[in-house]
Amino acid sequence: MNHLSFVQGGCVVLRIDVPPGTRLIDVIRQETRRGSLSLPWRCAQGTCGACVLKLSRSQGPSPPVVLGRLERNVLIRQGQLPADAPLEQPDTPATPRLACHVAVDSDLIVYF
């Protein structure tokens, strides 16, 4: 199991364990419906940009993340990345991500 901590305004609002490979958006949808989170999401397909958030890995820095073209283009359209942003981005809390494009593969801290 991978451990997720959701942080809003500097406070941990939810801790949950999920199986490896779980899509982050599926966790967010489930916990939002339960009332445990108030995190926006809309399409869950990676095209609207509503589920933008920041992540950090509990075990520290990791190799750069390679965004898919769709995720990169949506983040550019949303003004989250510059127009010339490469697909490879540093895996830091400063890098915006779309929850619908993230498969949970380690313990994560989710900032929203």
Rank of each mutant, 00 (worst) to 15 (best):
S58M: 07
R97D: 06
P86A: 01
R77Y: 04
S58R: 12
S38Y: 14
P61Q: 15
L55G: 14
T47V: 13
L4Y: 03
T47L: 12
A85L: 06
V66L: 02
H3A: 07
C51T: 06
C11F: 09
V65Y: 02
N2D: 10
P40Y: 13
D105C: 07
D107E: 04
H101E: 06
A103T: 05
Q80C: 13
V74D: 12
Q89Y: 05
L70C: 10
G46V: 08
P82S: 03
R29C: 08
Q59G: 12
G21H: 03
Q59M: 13
E31G: 00
Q78Y: 02
N73Y: 00
S62N: 06
R57D: 11
Q8Y: 01
M1A: 11
P20Y: 13
R57H: 07
L75W: 06
Q30A: 15
I25D: 05
R23L: 14
F112C: 01
A83K: 10
D17V: 04
G35S: 08
G79A: 10
S106Q: 10
V74P: 13
G21R: 12
Q45S: 15
I16K: 13
C51M: 01
S106Y: 03
D91T: 04
T22C: 15
D107I: 08
D17C: 09
S58K: 14
L14P: 04
Q45N: 08
V18L: 13
F112L: 08
V52Q: 03
P93G: 15
L81V: 07
A50F: 05
V65T: 09
G9W: 00
V12D: 04
C51P: 08
G10N: 14
R29P: 10
P90N: 02
D91R: 01
D107W: 06
D91L: 00
I109P: 06
C43R: 14
R33C: 02
R97L: 03
S36I: 00
R72G: 00
S38L: 09
D105L: 11
R69L: 15
R77D: 04
E71R: 07
Q89N: 03
V66I: 08
S38Q: 09
R57M: 12
Q30N: 10
E31R: 13
P93D: 15
P86Y: 01
D17S: 09
Q80K: 15
V66T: 08
E88C: 14
V104Y: 00
F112P: 09
R57E: 14
A103R: 11
Q80I: 04
G79H: 07
C48W: 02
L75G: 04
G79E: 11
R69M: 04
V12T: 15
G60E: 13
E31K: 12
R15C: 11
P63F: 11
T95P: 01
G68M: 05
S56A: 13
L108T: 14
T92G: 15
V12I: 13
G49S: 11
T92C: 09
L108I: 06
Q80T: 15
R57L: 06
P64K: 10
S5Q: 07
V66D: 04
G49N: 09
R69W: 06
Y111I: 14
D84P: 11
D17G: 10
T47Y: 02
I16N: 12
K54T: 14
R72Y: 00
V74K: 14
Q89E: 03
C11G: 12
L98T: 00
R97K: 05
S58G: 08
W41C: 01
T22N: 09
D84M: 11
L70S: 08
G21K: 11
Q80R: 14
R57S: 15
